[in-house]
Protein backbone atom coordinates (compact mmCIF):
# COMPACT_ATOMS: atom_id res chain seq x y z
CA UNK A 1 0.00 0.00 0.00
CA UNK A 2 2.72 2.35 1.01
CA UNK A 3 4.62 1.49 -2.13
CA UNK A 4 1.59 2.15 -4.23
CA UNK A 5 1.05 5.46 -2.54
CA UNK A 6 4.67 6.40 -3.08
CA UNK A 7 4.49 5.46 -6.73
CA UNK A 8 1.32 7.49 -7.17
CA UNK A 9 2.86 10.48 -5.43
CA UNK A 10 5.99 10.25 -7.51
CA UNK A 11 3.94 10.06 -10.71
CA UNK A 12 1.81 13.02 -9.67
CA UNK A 13 4.92 15.07 -9.01
CA UNK A 14 6.06 14.36 -12.55
CA UNK A 15 3.14 16.22 -14.09
CA UNK A 16 4.02 19.77 -13.01
CA UNK A 17 7.68 19.13 -13.76
CA UNK A 18 6.93 18.00 -17.28
CA UNK A 19 4.53 20.87 -17.80
CA UNK A 20 7.17 23.27 -16.53
CA UNK A 21 9.69 21.69 -18.85
CA UNK A 22 7.46 22.24 -21.86
CA UNK A 23 6.87 25.86 -20.89
CA UNK A 24 10.57 26.41 -20.32
CA UNK A 25 11.50 25.01 -23.71
CA UNK A 26 8.69 26.95 -25.34
CA UNK A 27 9.85 30.20 -23.79
CA UNK A 28 13.42 29.59 -24.90
CA UNK A 29 12.37 28.83 -28.43
CA UNK A 30 10.27 31.90 -29.06
CA UNK A 31 12.92 34.36 -27.97
CA UNK A 32 15.17 33.25 -30.80
CA UNK A 33 16.22 36.26 -32.87
CA UNK A 34 16.61 34.90 -36.40
CA UNK A 35 13.40 34.28 -38.26
CA UNK A 36 12.69 30.59 -38.83
CA UNK A 37 10.00 31.37 -41.37
CA UNK A 38 12.36 33.06 -43.78
CA UNK A 39 14.27 29.79 -43.93
CA UNK A 40 11.20 27.81 -44.82
CA UNK A 41 10.09 30.08 -47.57
CA UNK A 42 12.98 29.66 -49.95
CA UNK A 43 15.24 32.10 -51.64
CA UNK A 44 13.04 34.46 -53.56
CA UNK A 45 9.88 34.22 -51.52
CA UNK A 46 7.80 37.35 -51.39
CA UNK A 47 6.81 38.89 -48.05
CA UNK A 48 3.29 37.56 -48.72
CA UNK A 49 4.57 34.02 -49.01
CA UNK A 50 6.52 34.44 -45.79
CA UNK A 51 3.40 35.70 -44.06
CA UNK A 52 1.40 32.77 -45.38
CA UNK A 53 3.92 30.37 -43.96
CA UNK A 54 4.04 32.22 -40.70
CA UNK A 55 0.32 31.80 -40.53
CA UNK A 56 0.46 28.14 -41.49
CA UNK A 57 2.87 27.44 -38.65
CA UNK A 58 0.88 29.62 -36.28
CA UNK A 59 3.80 31.91 -35.52
CA UNK A 60 1.60 35.00 -35.95
CA UNK A 61 -0.70 34.19 -33.05
CA UNK A 62 -0.30 35.47 -29.46
CA UNK A 63 2.16 33.47 -27.36
CA UNK A 64 -0.39 31.86 -25.00
CA UNK A 65 -2.35 30.60 -28.00
CA UNK A 66 0.84 29.26 -29.53
CA UNK A 67 1.65 27.53 -26.24
CA UNK A 68 -1.78 25.88 -26.12
CA UNK A 69 -1.40 24.72 -29.68
CA UNK A 70 2.05 23.43 -28.84
CA UNK A 71 0.75 21.48 -25.83
CA UNK A 72 -2.05 20.00 -27.86
CA UNK A 73 0.42 18.98 -30.51
CA UNK A 74 2.75 17.40 -27.94
CA UNK A 75 -0.15 15.48 -26.47
CA UNK A 76 -0.50 13.81 -29.86
CA UNK A 77 3.14 12.76 -29.61
CA UNK A 78 4.08 15.26 -32.29
CA UNK A 79 7.31 17.20 -31.77
CA UNK A 80 6.79 19.19 -34.94
CA UNK A 81 8.54 19.10 -38.28
CA UNK A 82 12.19 19.76 -38.87
CA UNK A 83 12.44 23.14 -40.57
CA UNK A 84 15.28 21.76 -42.59
CA UNK A 85 14.56 18.20 -43.65
CA UNK A 86 10.79 18.55 -43.67
CA UNK A 87 10.45 15.28 -41.76
CA UNK A 88 8.65 14.89 -38.44
CA UNK A 89 11.16 15.36 -35.63
CA UNK A 90 9.96 12.23 -33.89
CA UNK A 91 10.87 10.27 -37.02
CA UNK A 92 14.34 11.79 -37.02
CA UNK A 93 14.83 11.19 -33.30
CA UNK A 94 13.52 7.63 -33.36
CA UNK A 95 15.73 6.89 -36.35
CA UNK A 96 18.80 8.05 -34.48
CA UNK A 97 17.91 6.97 -30.98
CA UNK A 98 19.23 3.39 -31.30
CA UNK A 99 22.71 4.76 -31.96
CA UNK A 100 22.62 6.91 -28.84
CA UNK A 101 21.05 4.12 -26.83
CA UNK A 102 23.76 1.70 -27.85
CA UNK A 103 26.46 4.18 -26.92
CA UNK A 104 24.81 5.10 -23.62
CA UNK A 105 24.24 1.48 -22.66
CA UNK A 106 27.84 0.62 -23.45
CA UNK A 107 29.02 3.57 -21.37
CA UNK A 108 26.66 2.63 -18.56
CA UNK A 109 27.97 -0.94 -18.63
CA UNK A 110 31.57 0.23 -18.43
CA UNK A 111 30.64 2.60 -15.63
CA UNK A 112 28.86 0.08 -13.45
CA UNK A 113 30.90 -3.03 -14.21
CA UNK A 114 34.14 -1.20 -13.64
CA UNK A 115 33.07 1.48 -11.17
CA UNK A 116 31.35 -0.62 -8.53
CA UNK A 117 34.15 -3.19 -8.04
CA UNK A 118 36.77 -0.45 -8.05
CA UNK A 119 34.79 1.52 -5.49
CA UNK A 120 34.42 -1.51 -3.24
CA UNK A 121 38.12 -2.30 -3.50
CA UNK A 122 39.04 1.28 -2.74
CA UNK A 123 36.91 1.17 0.38
CA UNK A 124 38.23 -2.18 1.53
CA UNK A 125 41.84 -1.10 0.99
CA UNK A 126 41.28 2.41 2.17
CA UNK A 127 44.35 4.66 2.17
CA UNK A 128 46.44 2.11 0.33
CA UNK A 129 48.39 3.19 -2.72
CA UNK A 130 45.55 1.74 -4.77
CA UNK A 131 43.01 3.96 -3.07
CA UNK A 132 45.16 7.03 -3.67
CA UNK A 133 45.74 6.17 -7.30
CA UNK A 134 42.05 5.63 -7.83
CA UNK A 135 41.25 8.90 -6.14
CA UNK A 136 43.62 10.74 -8.45
CA UNK A 137 41.99 9.09 -11.45
CA UNK A 138 38.45 9.82 -10.31
CA UNK A 139 39.27 13.41 -9.50
CA UNK A 140 40.64 13.83 -13.01
CA UNK A 141 37.55 12.15 -14.40
CA UNK A 142 35.48 15.03 -13.13
CA UNK A 143 37.95 17.65 -14.29
CA UNK A 144 38.60 16.56 -17.84
CA UNK A 145 36.61 18.11 -20.69
CA UNK A 146 35.09 15.12 -22.45
CA UNK A 147 35.55 16.60 -25.91
CA UNK A 148 39.23 17.02 -25.16
CA UNK A 149 39.54 13.49 -23.78
CA UNK A 150 37.84 12.26 -26.94
CA UNK A 151 40.30 14.12 -29.14
CA UNK A 152 43.29 12.92 -27.14
CA UNK A 153 42.08 9.31 -27.41
CA UNK A 154 41.61 9.74 -31.15
CA UNK A 155 45.08 11.21 -31.40
CA UNK A 156 46.62 8.26 -29.60
CA UNK A 157 44.57 5.25 -30.63
CA UNK A 158 43.31 6.24 -34.08
CA UNK A 159 45.87 8.57 -35.56
CA UNK A 160 49.11 7.52 -33.92
CA UNK A 161 48.65 3.80 -33.22
CA UNK A 162 45.95 3.27 -35.83
CA UNK A 163 44.29 0.68 -33.63
CA UNK A 164 40.77 1.99 -33.62
CA UNK A 165 38.64 3.94 -36.08
CA UNK A 166 38.51 7.70 -35.80
CA UNK A 167 34.76 7.91 -35.89
CA UNK A 168 31.52 6.57 -37.27
CA UNK A 169 29.49 3.64 -36.09
CA UNK A 170 30.48 0.82 -38.38
CA UNK A 171 32.89 0.31 -41.29
CA UNK A 172 31.06 -2.50 -43.09
CA UNK A 173 27.44 -2.81 -44.15
CA UNK A 174 25.34 -2.71 -40.97
CA UNK A 175 23.79 -5.98 -39.76
CA UNK A 176 20.16 -6.66 -40.52
CA UNK A 177 18.17 -4.33 -38.27
CA UNK A 178 16.33 -6.14 -35.50
CA UNK A 179 16.86 -3.87 -32.52
CA UNK A 180 18.81 -1.08 -34.16
CA UNK A 181 21.71 -1.74 -31.78
CA UNK A 182 24.47 -2.87 -34.12
CA UNK A 183 26.33 -5.00 -31.59
CA UNK A 184 23.20 -6.86 -30.58
CA UNK A 185 21.95 -7.21 -34.16
CA UNK A 186 25.32 -8.55 -35.28
CA UNK A 187 25.24 -11.11 -32.46
CA UNK A 188 21.70 -12.16 -33.25
CA UNK A 189 22.35 -12.54 -36.97
CA UNK A 190 25.73 -14.13 -36.44
CA UNK A 191 27.45 -11.45 -38.51
CA UNK A 192 31.06 -11.62 -37.34
CA UNK A 193 32.45 -8.85 -39.53
CA UNK A 194 29.75 -6.42 -38.43
CA UNK A 195 30.22 -7.37 -34.78
CA UNK A 196 33.93 -6.73 -34.88
CA UNK A 197 33.54 -3.46 -36.71
CA UNK A 198 30.74 -2.27 -34.42
CA UNK A 199 32.76 -3.09 -31.30
CA UNK A 200 35.83 -1.33 -32.67
CA UNK A 201 33.82 1.76 -33.40
CA UNK A 202 32.16 1.63 -29.99
CA UNK A 203 35.38 1.43 -27.92
CA UNK A 204 36.57 5.01 -27.80
CA UNK A 205 33.24 6.86 -27.66
CA UNK A 206 31.85 4.56 -24.97
CA UNK A 207 34.95 4.92 -22.85
CA UNK A 208 35.03 8.71 -23.27
CA UNK A 209 31.40 8.94 -22.29
CA UNK A 210 31.89 6.61 -19.34
CA UNK A 211 34.94 8.29 -17.88
CA UNK A 212 33.36 11.15 -15.88
CA UNK A 213 30.47 8.93 -14.81
CA UNK A 214 32.94 6.30 -13.71
CA UNK A 215 34.49 8.81 -11.33
CA UNK A 216 31.13 9.48 -9.73
CA UNK A 217 30.29 5.82 -9.33
CA UNK A 218 33.64 4.93 -7.79
CA UNK A 219 33.35 7.76 -5.31
CA UNK A 220 29.81 6.93 -4.26
CA UNK A 221 30.41 3.21 -4.04
CA UNK A 222 33.46 3.83 -1.93
CA UNK A 223 31.60 6.17 0.39
CA UNK A 224 28.60 3.82 0.52
CA UNK A 225 30.75 0.82 1.40
CA UNK A 226 32.60 2.79 4.05
CA UNK A 227 29.31 3.83 5.63
CA UNK A 228 28.16 0.25 5.72
CA UNK A 229 31.51 -0.96 7.02
CA UNK A 230 31.17 1.33 9.99
CA UNK A 231 27.53 0.59 10.59
CA UNK A 232 26.40 -1.31 13.60
CA UNK A 233 25.08 -4.34 11.87
CA UNK A 234 28.35 -5.11 10.11
CA UNK A 235 30.23 -4.65 13.35
CA UNK A 236 27.75 -7.08 14.83
CA UNK A 237 28.18 -9.58 12.01
CA UNK A 238 31.91 -9.34 12.40
CA UNK A 239 31.62 -9.85 16.10
CA UNK A 240 29.55 -12.92 15.28
CA UNK A 241 32.61 -14.20 13.45
CA UNK A 242 31.11 -14.44 9.99
CA UNK A 243 33.80 -14.90 7.34
CA UNK A 244 34.85 -11.67 5.68
CA UNK A 245 34.08 -12.71 2.07
CA UNK A 246 30.54 -13.50 3.11
CA UNK A 247 30.12 -10.12 4.74
CA UNK A 248 31.53 -8.36 1.71
CA UNK A 249 29.50 -10.36 -0.75
CA UNK A 250 26.19 -10.51 0.97
CA UNK A 251 25.77 -7.36 2.96
CA UNK A 252 28.20 -4.88 1.65
CA UNK A 253 27.41 -5.18 -1.99
CA UNK A 254 23.69 -5.04 -1.60
CA UNK A 255 23.86 -1.93 0.49
CA UNK A 256 26.46 -0.35 -1.70
CA UNK A 257 24.32 -1.05 -4.74
CA UNK A 258 21.56 1.08 -3.28
CA UNK A 259 24.00 3.96 -2.99
CA UNK A 260 25.07 3.47 -6.59
CA UNK A 261 21.56 3.11 -7.89
CA UNK A 262 20.63 6.55 -6.59
CA UNK A 263 23.40 7.84 -8.80
CA UNK A 264 22.26 6.10 -11.95
CA UNK A 265 19.45 8.53 -12.61
CA UNK A 266 21.89 11.41 -12.30
CA UNK A 267 24.45 9.53 -14.35
CA UNK A 268 21.98 9.14 -17.14
CA UNK A 269 21.75 12.91 -17.34
CA UNK A 270 25.52 13.16 -17.42
CA UNK A 271 25.66 10.57 -20.19
CA UNK A 272 22.88 12.17 -22.20
CA UNK A 273 24.54 15.57 -22.08
CA UNK A 274 27.93 14.01 -22.71
CA UNK A 275 26.53 12.27 -25.78
CA UNK A 276 26.22 15.64 -27.51
CA UNK A 277 29.94 16.34 -27.53
CA UNK A 278 31.11 12.73 -27.71
CA UNK A 279 28.91 12.04 -30.72
CA UNK A 280 30.18 15.22 -32.34
CA UNK A 281 33.82 14.30 -31.97
CA UNK A 282 33.34 10.66 -32.96
CA UNK A 283 30.84 11.34 -35.73
CA UNK A 284 28.43 9.00 -34.01
CA UNK A 285 25.07 9.26 -35.82
CA UNK A 286 22.86 9.56 -32.74
CA UNK A 287 20.57 12.22 -31.38
CA UNK A 288 23.47 14.20 -29.93
CA UNK A 289 24.97 14.66 -33.36
CA UNK A 290 21.50 15.44 -34.64
CA UNK A 291 21.24 18.20 -32.05
CA UNK A 292 24.60 19.67 -33.03
CA UNK A 293 23.58 19.59 -36.69
CA UNK A 294 20.39 21.34 -35.72
CA UNK A 295 22.45 23.98 -33.94
CA UNK A 296 24.61 24.52 -37.01
CA UNK A 297 21.54 24.82 -39.22
CA UNK A 298 19.50 26.86 -36.73
CA UNK A 299 16.79 24.21 -37.00
CA UNK A 300 14.87 25.46 -34.00
CA UNK A 301 12.15 22.86 -34.10
CA UNK A 302 14.75 20.15 -33.98
CA UNK A 303 16.67 21.75 -31.11
CA UNK A 304 13.42 22.15 -29.25
CA UNK A 305 12.50 18.55 -29.95
CA UNK A 306 15.87 17.33 -28.77
CA UNK A 307 15.73 19.39 -25.58
CA UNK A 308 12.25 18.17 -24.72
CA UNK A 309 13.15 14.61 -25.58
CA UNK A 310 16.20 14.77 -23.29
CA UNK A 311 14.12 16.27 -20.51
CA UNK A 312 11.43 13.61 -20.82
CA UNK A 313 13.97 10.80 -20.87
CA UNK A 314 15.80 12.25 -17.90
CA UNK A 315 12.61 12.65 -15.84
CA UNK A 316 11.53 9.15 -16.80
CA UNK A 317 14.83 7.54 -15.88
CA UNK A 318 14.87 9.36 -12.56
CA UNK A 319 11.37 8.09 -11.88
CA UNK A 320 12.41 4.54 -12.69
CA UNK A 321 15.49 4.72 -10.46
CA UNK A 322 13.38 6.05 -7.60
CA UNK A 323 10.91 3.23 -8.03
CA UNK A 324 13.74 0.71 -8.32
CA UNK A 325 15.24 2.09 -5.17
CA UNK A 326 11.92 1.70 -3.41
CA UNK A 327 11.86 -1.97 -4.31
CA UNK A 328 15.43 -2.42 -3.15
CA UNK A 329 15.04 -0.41 0.02
CA UNK A 330 11.44 0.09 1.15
CA UNK A 331 12.52 2.61 3.77
CA UNK A 332 12.98 5.07 0.93
CA UNK A 333 9.24 5.23 0.47
CA UNK A 334 8.63 6.43 3.99
CA UNK A 335 11.13 9.26 3.86
Amino acid sequence: MRRLLYTAKRLALMVPTLFGLVVLVFVISRVIPADPVALLAGERATPQQIEALRHRYGLDRPLPVQLLAYLRQLARGDLGTSLYSGRPITTDLFGRFPATLELTLAAMAITVLLGVPLGVLAALYRNSWFDHLLRAVTVSGLAIASFWLAIMLQLLFSMELRLLPLGGRIGVPPPRALTGLFVLDALLTGNGAALRSALQHLCLPAFTLAFPALATVVRFTRAGVLDVLHSDFILYERAMGLPRPLIVGKYLLRNAMAATLTQIGLLFGVLLAGAVVVETVFDWPGIGLYAVNAIVLSDYNAILGFTLWSGFLYVLVNLLTDLGLMLLDPREATR
Binding site: F157, L163, L164, V172, A193, R196, Q200, C203
Partner: peptide, 16 residues
Protein backbone atom coordinates in the same frame (compact mmCIF):
# COMPACT_ATOMS: atom_id res chain seq x y z
CA UNK B 1 51.15 -3.31 -23.65
CA UNK B 2 48.25 -2.32 -25.82
CA UNK B 3 47.26 -5.87 -26.54
CA UNK B 4 43.86 -5.34 -25.04
CA UNK B 5 42.86 -3.30 -28.03
CA UNK B 6 44.22 -5.71 -30.58
CA UNK B 7 40.79 -6.83 -31.67
CA UNK B 8 40.86 -3.65 -33.65
CA UNK B 9 43.30 -4.38 -36.42
CA UNK B 10 42.40 -7.89 -37.52
CA UNK B 11 40.60 -8.09 -40.81
CA UNK B 12 40.10 -4.41 -41.18
CA UNK B 13 40.39 -4.44 -44.94
CA UNK B 14 38.54 -7.70 -45.41
CA UNK B 15 35.43 -6.15 -46.74
CA UNK B 16 35.84 -3.01 -48.72
Amino acid sequence: GLGALALATAGRRAWS
